[in-house]
Simulated scan of single mutants.
Amino acid sequence: MILVLGAGYAGLAAAVQLAARRVPVTLVNAQDRFTERLRLSLTATGQQVADLRIPDLLAATSASFVPGRVTALDPKAHTVRVDDEHTLHYSTLVYALGSVADTADPHAYTLNSATDAARLARRLTGLDRGTVVVVGSGLTGVESAAEIAERFPALTVVLAGRTEPGAGLHPRARKHLLAALDRLGVRLRGGVTGLHPGRVDFADGTSLDADAVLWTGGTRVAPLAADAGLAVDGNGRIVTDGTLRSVSHPDVYAVGDAAAIRQPYGLMHGTCQGGMPTGVHAALSICGGPRPFRFGYYHTPISLGRHDAVVQFTRPDDSPRRIVLTGRLAVRYKEAVTAAPWPAYRRMLRLPASGAWWPRGGRFTRAAAR
């Protein structure tokens, strides 16, 4: 039996592609709702997002869905333990358990799940005034700070990070991003050195009273793979070969954030842009034989509230090109691409079951069956 662990962007792509080819597959996920991580900043500010249910998507397919949390993996016995209650056996495993915010601080909110985001929304809604500190000046931090500032104008929003927001963008894109944050009243600060009840310490030795702290400063993966004896990198991600198989256990494919996938330009970083192709590739390799995986980035869309955005088009190595979209056009572009995963999964289910279909340039190209 083929077993897929995790139903994020990568894991669900693998399960759907296998189901489309009438391959018996079991998908395990902690909840039956698909979490659009790209939209968790909306949930965190009390905005409604689509309620997407995994069993509905997989209905009338060969796939089985098991709700539960993976608690142990035994690659020698080819078994997975779910909720410490029952055991599932596999012949081939797709490991797609993703990542979570790299903090265990009880004083910080996170965007690990829709439940976590909703908890922050309740806190923000209950504040008439006060200060919210968003830790981490990466894309999630920027989008979250902008959404909070726009949705709750009475609150003071501080975005704190070791680097300037938009540091990796083309100067024109970075200028627009910084101007948007300034227009929304978001204040920029340097790195954070400590969190305390109601207070944040900064690297410059100063402190700031805070009514809520949102942590977006990096991610980490679960120790499950390392504990099971799979080869992992220094961050606990499964090290893969060129076909996305574990270098230590070739009957295990690793995809998405939980995998250390090397390309000619370096290691891939976690986004749905890269995650979905890894899931599709793993499924097609299982069906038609392992093939080398090649991936190049295309764009970096960034929301700046509901009425502004910037889209940075990139080279395959994720370095910025000169092409940039801003304002309303960028908003429409980003809404279109972030809405794409669920329709894309449905289109995968309609692909012909015979032959080998490989993703190429955003489309599926038929290759000779192996």
Rank of each mutant, 00 (worst) to 15 (best):
V135Q: 03
G275E: 05
Y90P: 03
A225F: 02
V70Y: 00
P320V: 00
N112W: 00
P352H: 14
L181S: 05
E150N: 04
T125L: 08
G190D: 13
P352G: 08
G126E: 14
P359R: 11
R291C: 08
R122K: 09
L329F: 15
V232F: 01
A258C: 09
H170G: 04
G218R: 07
V49I: 15
L169H: 11
D241G: 15
S99Q: 10
R122I: 11
H78K: 14
L178N: 14
V186D: 05
A149E: 10
T219K: 08
L18M: 07
A104I: 00
L88V: 02
Q263W: 06
A210R: 00
G236H: 03
V16N: 02
L178D: 15
A260L: 07
A59T: 11
A353P: 08
P24L: 06
D102Q: 14
D74G: 02
T110W: 02
G234W: 04
L181W: 12
M268V: 09
A77M: 05
V94K: 12
L127N: 04
R262F: 09
V82C: 03
P301R: 01
P24D: 11
V66K: 01
M1S: 13
G327H: 13
P341D: 13
S62W: 10
S207G: 05
T26G: 06
V337T: 14
P250M: 05
S246P: 10
Y297H: 00
G234L: 03
G185H: 13
E164P: 05
S41C: 11
S64A: 13
S41N: 15
N29V: 03
Q17V: 13
A50V: 10
G355Q: 12
T103K: 11
G305T: 05
M268E: 00
V23Q: 15
L169I: 01
E147G: 01
G136E: 01
V4C: 04
E335I: 09
A225T: 04
A283C: 08
A369E: 11
R328L: 12
T103F: 03
G242V: 07
P75G: 01
A59C: 11
A340L: 14
G161H: 06
G198C: 14
A7V: 06
H176V: 10
L284A: 10
A145L: 06
R199K: 06
A117N: 08
G274P: 06
R174W: 11
T338V: 14
A10G: 04
T71A: 07
